[in-house]
Design a protein around this nucleic acid. Structure first.
Lengths: 141, 141
DNA sequence: GTTCTTGCAAACAATTTGCAAAACT
DNA sequence: AGTTTTGCAAATTGTTTGCAAGAAC
């Protein structure tokens, strides 16, 4: 997500572009996928040391509302976030042993959305998470 | 989930069968899908008025560990639970307007699990949630 | 100048933990 | 009898809110 596009989206939503928001945006892209608020806060602080955790939460809320970020739930009791990649879309593979998170670009959900639409429900988004054991953990036990 | 099978599973895991656990199990099956701890507590209290919310939490943890229940995350900040139906498997359709939750038995994820396995990751479970607008909310606005 | 945003402290909500009493096997 | 489970109160954790000062437009 480049800064100009993000700034434009924020302004279009009547929101302002601040140093803190730039820091959170950069933190999000640097952290890659499924980072939690604490991690984002830590990373954003490198660029803007005085940023508070509360601001990170509020910024993530604004980003989500403007489509710049999206949330992910992996069942560990915290909300995770990642920058929205325009046109792209990925899912998470969570290793139940080491906790590492991998991703996959493949998605076989679309045909399902079709059959659901035929029942009257219009799908606008979906979330898919896969759980299991990564190559490393699978061989070492 | 019938009581005998559940009781067997609990005992097999070195756990005991108590009136509270029976109440939670029944609450889970009566509530259907994606009920939160508070709802389960309320329903379980009909059968066992003295049961505490804490016991519900601990019971849900035990049930999840023994495969009798499973958790669902719909992004509203609370963990939801449902009884595991042996051999069956369903996904959730969440209406973004009215919040109602529907389900679908169809699942197109399996082929994806195959290609992921070829990369070394062994998938043992997955979660899929679909978001959008239900028939009712779609027509009325 | 006006309105949105930030930071801090405090409030909240969901969930977890410590411990003695009660219940299952 | 021995070990697990329960209920209560209190503690934790992740997240949100109130408000005055600061920054963007």
């Amino acid at each position: 997500m480049d800064l100009d596009r993000a700034a434009g989206r924020l302004r279009a939503g009547g929101r302002r572009v601040t140093a803190q928001r730039r820091a959170v945006l950069r933190a999000l892209t640097e952290l890659g996928c499924a980072a939690d608020a604490e991690e984002i806060h830590g990373r954003a602080r490198r660029m803007h040391p005085r940023i508070g955790l509360v601001t990170v939460y509020r910024t993530l809320e604004a980003f989500t509302a403007e489509g710049l970020a999206q949330s992910v739930f992996l069942g560990d009791g915290r909300t995770r976030y990642e920058a929205t990649e325009q046109g792209r879309h990925h899912h998470h593979l969570v290793c139940l042993h080491c906790g590492r998170i991998a991703t996959t670009d493949e998605c076989t959900v679309q045909p399902l959305e079709g059959t659901i639409l035929r029942r009257g429900f219009e799908v606008t988004a979906h979330r898919l998470e896969l759980f299991g054991y990564c190559a490393r953990c699978r061989t070492r036990r």
